[in-house]
């Protein structure tokens, strides 16, 4: 069975910046397989974020093809893309991106509500996930009443809510102190290790990248390195 979840085929992404054309990605070829923990690394401006947007189906390539579960995302309508995104990918953002007007529980419930999951089931699952990330006592709190680490944990719970195949993390510890950052990374590691999730993490921090089993390094929009991480760091928990 083909374990490829996402495949990039000669992908170009071009932005128009005034009169200049910027090639954010140049002929990128890559595959992400089920159950892998991959880190996309590179300095800023290397095309990491662009790649992450494409992996997350938030954007479509200028040229080339991207297959998500063997569907070419360029050929999908926005609403189908949204549905596919909702079921397949769970996002963890650097700035958490929680909805400020909603409680922790409501934030975790949101993806389930979007998918029209029955209320009882949705609520049970959201509570389970918040308990899993250690926030069972903060469910009624709004993001503003939570610390950065707690917010990121809510966002992890939200990413897991619709039981997606892929967890896509964009600099997940970028806004956190080192201790909390470690906690979050351990959580991601466990999700990969124990729950068999496919984790794709975008980072410029080589320490974080050590948690991953595979590194894809970008430079100036091109993949300069794509190899397994020999020294994968296994946190204790």
């Amino acid at each position: 069975m083909d374990k490829t979840l996402i495949a990039f085929r000669d992908v170009w992404k071009t932005y128009q910046m005034g009169e200049i054309q910027v090639n954010a990605l140049k002929e990128v070829n890559a595959e992400f397989r089920k159950g892998e923990f991959t880190a996309i690394i590179g300095p800023s401006g290397s095309g990491k974020s662009t790649m992450m947007n494409l992996v997350g189906c938030l954007d479509v390539p200028s040229e080339g093809e991207i297959f998500l579960k063997s569907k070419n995302i360029a050929s999908l309508e926005e609403s189908d893309l949204a549905a596919l995104r909702g079921k397949t990918i769970g996002f963890i953002f650097q700035q958490y991106n929680l909805i400020p007007g909603m409680t922790a529980l409501e934030n975790v419930l949101l993806p389930l509500e979007i998918q029209e999951i029955d209320d009882d089931i949705a609520e049970k699952r959201a509570k389970e996930l918040l308990t899993l990330v250690g926030l069972s006592d903060k469910m009624k709190n709004r993001p503003s009443q939570l610390s950065g680490g707690q917010q990121q944990r809510v966002s992890i719970a939200r990413a897991l809510a619709s039981n997606p195949d892929i967890i896509l993390a964009d600099e997940p510890t970028g806004a956190l102190d080192s201790v909390t950052g470690k906690e979050v990374m351990t959580m991601l590691y466990r999700l990969w290790k124990e729950n068999g999730k496919t984790v794709i993490m975008v980072t410029h921090d080589m320490h974080l990248a050590q948690y991953a089993q595979r590194h894809i390094e970008l430079k100036d929009g091109e993949v300069v390195r794509d190899e397994p991480n020999q020294d994968q760091f296994c946190p204790e928990y």
Partner: peptide, 16 residues
């Protein structure tokens, strides 16, 4: 705008 982006990222459709 940002919330719209978040909601779309987690699967909300245009009509929603």
């Amino acid at each position: 705008t940002k919330e719209i982006g978040i909601m779309k990222a987690i699967g909300a459709q245009n009509k929603d």
